[in-house]
């Protein structure tokens, strides 16, 4: 960062000095072609060297982006315009079908439910993760014994492979022998076992709950960091004025946490909207398609039905939605930096 700024400084400086010398040259001589080229040669050489350096700085990142982001995205877009099936792998032929795949996607009976489920899943997960994460972050801001230990234990869900956690949750949520139902029944909260993963009306909620559990560590970690940046003096000053507890939160913590909050929320949306493994592990999109989301549709069309074109169309729609939030994130981030 500093280096680049340095370089920009020199470039700008060079320009200024050159223009100054240019001014001192008589007007007629300036218009003449010969001295102009004479003068320009060293400048051009210097300029081109700097350009090369600049290019070399950009090259690794550009190359990486092109290879690992550009190519897959372009391939995904072209694939969504082709009839790309099992045959394609053997014959290499993937006829162009225009927007037919997108038409198939939008007209499929599962498109509407998948959109709604994606929205519900994302909003539910983010709301739960955020509220619980913020509460825990505030809690851990106090000093008490074992604080650090407990906070690191909280990272556990983050460290477990998602396939492992979803398999574990599947048995926890089992209707007949799951420990959650037995626990709730033991407490007398429920009389009938809750069909967590077997009822189409409850399954989405169950999946959201598990995803909240997965997302809490991320929220706590980021917001705990944000809380650390709020100077204690503010709270001390406020407590002199009688603002403690909820009032302190409302008038000091919340406004000061704004930039972090917007970043957490937008990143959370981008991460959550594409969640695949948890849902695959828990319900595989069922029961009766009750937990179908755009990412599950994309996966199943591609790798179960081997309709890679339709799958690509689903994932492009997903990428487009994520992109909107990514732009929001970039703007929020810039504002946070400006602040």
């Amino acid at each position: 960062m500093n280096r680049t700024q340095d370089m920009q400084g020199t470039t700008a400086g060079g320009h200024v000095s050159l223009t100054r010398t240019g001014k001192s040259v008589p007007a007629a001589a300036r218009r003449g072609p010969a001295p102009e080229t004479n003068k320009l040669t060293p400048r051009a050489r210097k300029f081109s060297r700097e350009a090369v350096v600049r290019l070399l700085f950009v090259a690794p990142a550009a190359l990486y982006l092109l290879l690992f982001f550009g190519y897959p995205v372009v391939k995904n877009v072209t694939m969504s315009l082709q009839d790309y099936g099992t045959k394609t792998f053997f014959t290499g032929e993937a006829p162009w079908v225009g927007l037919a795949n997108y038409v198939a996607v939008v007209n499929s009976n599962l498109f509407g439910p998948a959109m709604v489920n994606t929205a519900l899943f994302t909003i539910g997960s983010i709301a739960g993760q955020f509220v619980i994460g913020l509460a825990l972050a505030c809690f851990f801001k106090r000093r008490f014994p074992l604080n650090n230990f407990l906070r690191s234990m909280l990272l556990l869900p983050w460290l477990l492979p998602l396939i492992v956690s979803s398999a574990t949750w599947r048995s926890i949520l089992d209707q007949d022998s799951g420990i959650l139902n037995q626990f709730l029944a033991g407490l007398g909260i429920i009389s009938q076992p809750i069909p967590w993963l077997t009822s189409p009306t409850v399954a989405l909620l169950a999946v959201v709950l598990v995803n909240i559990w997965v997302g809490i560590p991320f929220n706590v970690t980021i917001m705990y960091g944000g809380l650390q940046d709020i100077p204690d003096e503010l709270y001390e000053a406020a407590s002199l004025d009688g603002a403690t507890g909820w009032k302190a939160f409302r008038h000091i913590t919340w406004p000061n946490l704004q930039p972090v909050v917007s970043v957490v929320l937008v990143l959370g949306v981008v991460y959550t909207i594409k969640v695949l493994d948890i849902i695959l592990g828990l319900t595989n999109g069922g029961p009766a398609n009750a937990t179908q989301t755009l990412s599950i549709r994309s996966y199943q069309e591609s790798f179960i039905n081997f309709e890679f074109g339709v799958g690509a169309a689903f994932s492009n729609i997903l990428i487009l939605i994520s992109l909107v939030f990514a732009v929001i994130y970039l703007r929020a981030n810039r504002r946070a930096v400006d602040d």
Partner: peptide, 18 residues
């Protein structure tokens, strides 16, 4: 001098990719 150094650094950064 600086730009030389920079070129070397950049070249080194690209090397593993290549």
């Amino acid at each position: 001098k600086k730009s030389h150094k920079i070129t070397t650094v950049t070249a080194l950064a690209i090397a593993p990719l290549v």
